[in-house]
Amino acid sequence: MSRAWVFGDDLDTDQMVPGRYAPFMVGQDRFHTYAFCDARPGFAKEVRPGDILVGGENLGCGSSREYAVLALKRLGVGGIVAKSFARIFFRNCINLGIPVLESADAVDLVKDGDEVSLDATAGVLGAPGGDIRLRPLPPFAKEILDAGGVIAFLREHGDFPRVGL
């Protein structure tokens, strides 16, 4: 089981990793230790591999900084469930292999600190109150995610997925 970290609407990437802690400001080996340092002090120390972020509308809005997603990946975040995602953040997560799934209800049904389990393939978030159905990913994104990210997909196939075109 993993822990749910619950956030509200419009969680921007400046909250995930402030610009002053960008990898090119503090080094590649340290930036992830500043994840949510202002918005949720202690997150980077307490988060465990497999933990799930749950949020509201427009999660990941703002700066395109992929290192916000990379910080979450370094910390082992196992997936993100939100009402909706900002577009660049969504792409970044798919590209780096973090499951991002939409649910209108999860943010209201899951409390911060709840034990949850994410089955990204089945599209289900197991929560104390019962299973929450998640919106399936578009096939194009799913193929990239299933490969472990866009780099892995391209290395294997040499080109973008052909589904959904």
């Binding site: 660049i88 866009v150 780099i151």
Partner: peptide
């Protein structure tokens, strides 16, 4: 705008 990996691609 896109993230670094999209731009690398």
């Amino acid at each position: 705008g896109m993230g670094g990996t999209d731009i690398a691609v």
